[in-house]
Amino acid sequence: MARKDYSSYTARDFALDEDFQQWVLQPATRNVFWERWLEQHPEKENDVREARQLLQGISFTSFQLSSEQKDGLWEAICGGLEGEGPTPQEPTRTNWWQLWKYAAALLLGMLIAGGWYWWKAEPKNTILSSHTRLGEVKTFLLPDSSEVTLNANSRLLYASAGKQREVWIDGEAFFHVKHTASHQKFIVHTYDNVHVEVLGTQFNVNSTGKEVVVVLQQGKIQLNIEGRNTSLALQPGDIVRYNKQDGDFTKSSVNADQYVSWHTGRLVMEDYSLADAATFMQQVFGKTIIVPDTQLLKYKVSGSMPIIYNADTMLVQLEKVFRMKFNQKGDEVWIQKK
C-alpha cells in the first residue's frame, strides 16, 4: 500500500492520521515505518512531538453500551432522577452536578474492558468523558477525530452511535468538528436548553455564568432553544446569547476571534472592559474580583496578550494593562486606581 506524503503534514494533520494514531496509541505494536521516517525527516520532530502530546493527552475511559444502557444514561443526564426528592422548578448547577455524578457512576458500572480500537472496526456506541480543573485547559481528539479544547473548570460527555454524535458540555469548549463520510450530525447540548447542531465546522460554546454564549467561527450551525420552538441558523461571525433565567436571547455579529482565541492561548481584547477581565478570572481561576468604585468596571482597553494559566501571572499582566492596583487576598482580588 502506498504511503502518504507526510513531509508537508502539520502537528494536527499527524494527530488526525489513522496510521499515526495507531503508532502512538498502540506502543506494544512496533511500527518500523514511523521510526525510519523520523530518522529520514528530523525537521518534522517538533510536529511529531506535538501530535504525540495531543493524542496522549486523551485521558478518557472507553465504554461500549447496549441500547438499553445508553437510553438509561441519557435519561439520567437529560431528564433528572426520580425518587431523589422533589424536583425544583428551575435547574441549578448543583442539580447538574448531581446528575453528572450519577452519570459517572452509571458509566463506571457499565465499563467493558477494552482500549482505543475505534479506528479499526465498525462504529460502536461509545461514551467518553473529560473535565478540567481551575487554571487548566485540555486539547484532545474525539474518536471521530473532531478536536476539542476544553477551557478551565469545564466538563464534557461524548457519545456516538448510528446517525449522530452527541456532546454534553458544562463550561466552555471550542469545537473543530470533523465531517464524516456518513454525514453524522454532531450535536452539542448544554444543561440550559440550548442545543447546537452541525456537520463539520468550528465554533465555541460557553455555558458559564448567567448566559449560554455560542459563537460561530467557520462553517454553519443550527442552534435550537428547547421550550421556545426556536431554531436559528448561524453564519461565521454570528453570536447568540441566551439568558438562562428568563429564556430571552439575542443574535448579532461580532469579531469571532475575541471569543474563540482563548483556545490558541491568546486573550484578544477589543473594547475589553475590567468587568470582562473579572469574568475571565472568575471562570478560569475561581477568583472573585471586588471593585469598590464600580465605575472602574467600565474602563476598556484593546489589544491582545498571551494567556498564562497561572492566576498570579495573569493578575500581574492585567494590572499592567488596566493600569490599576490589584490586591489579592486569598481568592478575592481588590482593585482600585493607582
Rank of each mutant, 00 (worst) to 15 (best):
V194N: 03
N229G: 15
T190D: 03
E197K: 14
E197N: 11
L216S: 07
E211R: 10
V198W: 08
R228M: 11
T180Y: 10
R241S: 07
L234R: 02
V188F: 06
D238F: 02
I225N: 00
E226F: 04
V240W: 02
I187W: 10
V213Y: 00
G237D: 11
V205C: 01
Y191F: 15
D238Y: 02
Q222F: 10
V188K: 04
G237F: 08
A181R: 14
N206H: 02
T190C: 04
L199C: 09
L216W: 01
N229L: 12
E226T: 09
Q222R: 15
Y191T: 07
P236Q: 10
N243R: 13
V214K: 00
V213E: 00
H195M: 13
R241C: 06
H189V: 05
L223I: 04
K220G: 04
Y191K: 15
F203V: 03
V240I: 15
F186C: 08
V194Y: 06
L199Y: 14
H183Q: 13
G209L: 10
H183V: 06
T208C: 14
V214E: 00
L232V: 09
V213G: 00
L216Y: 05
T208K: 13
G227I: 05
S231V: 06
V214T: 11
E211Y: 11
T180N: 06
Q218C: 07
P236N: 11
T201D: 08
N193S: 11
N229Y: 08
N229E: 12
Q217I: 04
I239N: 12
K185L: 12
N243C: 03
I187E: 13
S231I: 05
D238H: 11
E197L: 14
Y242A: 05
L234V: 04
H189D: 06
N243K: 13
R228V: 05
H189N: 14
T208R: 15
V198D: 05
I239S: 10
G237K: 06
I187G: 09
Q217S: 14
V198Q: 08
L234T: 04
V194H: 04
V213I: 07
V212C: 01
S231W: 07
A181C: 09
N193F: 13
A181H: 13
Q218R: 15
G237A: 09
F186K: 08
G227Y: 03
T230Y: 09
L232Q: 05
N229C: 08
I225R: 01
V194Q: 03
K185W: 10
D238K: 05
V198P: 07
R228Y: 13
A181I: 13
K220I: 07
G237H: 09
K210N: 06
Q184N: 11
N243A: 14
L232S: 03
Q202G: 10
E226L: 08
I221C: 14
V188A: 02
K220E: 02
E211P: 07
Y191M: 09
H183L: 13
L234A: 03
N224I: 08
S182K: 14
A233T: 11
V215L: 06
V205F: 00
E226S: 09
Q235T: 14
